[in-house]
Amino acid sequence: MQSASDHSNTVPEMVQTDLNKPELRLGSSGEAVEELQQLLTKRGVYTGKIDGIFEKVTQDCVKRYQRRFFLPDDGIVGYKTWLTLYTGRPVELPELRKGSSGELVMKVQRVLKSTQDYIGYVDGYFGPITEAAVQTWQVRNNLPDTGIIDEITWHALSKIRQ
């Protein structure tokens, strides 16, 4: 069996073959919801009762978890949310660099604003100010100061509580 290293988004083989989980949402119930609540507890975002009932508290914790891992924070537990719960790291995210744009860039800008590394507008454009903020943050966190958001940087950014 393959294992996930600290610097890889490689999913253990067991997770790849056994990750046939149902989509969960507000109103869902059963063993899969219990497992979800246990995983959210393990990841430090859920402190409620593990009762197998997907209520508002569970949904709010799922949304918080999704934001932390740069997923759409819709409160619905689909494939990518399950995958991050099992691996404890962001999955299937693109490399962002100068010239990139979009919602993920906005999310990164918001996170770097919260750490006081980014001083620009949250505009979704990865320009020189965003690049400098990423480099500054990388240096402070003992990462290669490339100014590029790669797999290692995504993982480190996901550890910032949002």
Rank of each mutant, 00 (worst) to 15 (best):
G102R: 06
L104M: 13
L104C: 11
L104P: 03
V105Y: 01
M106P: 10
M106E: 15
M106T: 14
K107S: 09
V108D: 00
V108S: 02
V108K: 02
V108E: 04
Q109K: 07
Q109F: 06
Q109C: 13
R110K: 15
V111R: 05
V111D: 05
V111S: 01
V111A: 08
V111M: 07
L112Q: 02
L112V: 06
L112D: 01
L112N: 11
L112R: 02
L112W: 07
K113T: 15
K113L: 13
T115C: 11
T115D: 04
T115V: 10
Q116H: 11
Q116W: 05
D117Y: 06
D117R: 00
D117S: 09
Y118H: 02
I119L: 15
I119Y: 10
G120P: 03
G120K: 03
G120Q: 04
Y121L: 12
Y121G: 01
V122H: 06
V122I: 14
V122G: 05
D123I: 11
D123H: 09
G124D: 12
G124P: 12
Y125V: 15
F126H: 03
G127L: 02
G127N: 15
P128H: 07
P128G: 05
P128E: 12
I129Q: 12
E131S: 08
E131A: 05
E131I: 04
A132F: 07
A132L: 00
A133V: 01
A133W: 00
A133E: 00
A133D: 01
A133I: 02
V134C: 08
V134G: 08
Q135Y: 07
Q135A: 12
T136V: 09
T136W: 09
W137K: 00
Q138P: 03
V139G: 01
V139A: 12
V139Y: 08
V139M: 12
R140Q: 15
R140G: 15
R140I: 12
N141D: 11
N141M: 08
N141K: 04
N141G: 03
N142T: 05
N142I: 06
N142V: 09
N142C: 10
L143N: 05
L143V: 07
L143D: 03
P144C: 01
P144Y: 10
P144W: 09
P144I: 13
D145C: 05
D145S: 14
T146P: 03
T146R: 09
T146W: 06
G147D: 03
G147F: 01
G147Q: 03
I148F: 05
I149H: 01
D150S: 10
D150G: 14
D150Y: 09
E151R: 11
I152T: 11
T153G: 02
T153L: 04
T153M: 10
W154N: 08
W154K: 01
W154F: 10
H155G: 10
A156K: 08
A156W: 06
L157R: 00
S158M: 08
K159R: 14
K159G: 13
K159S: 14
K159D: 14
I160R: 08
R161I: 11
R161D: 14
Q162D: 10
Q162E: 13
Q162P: 13
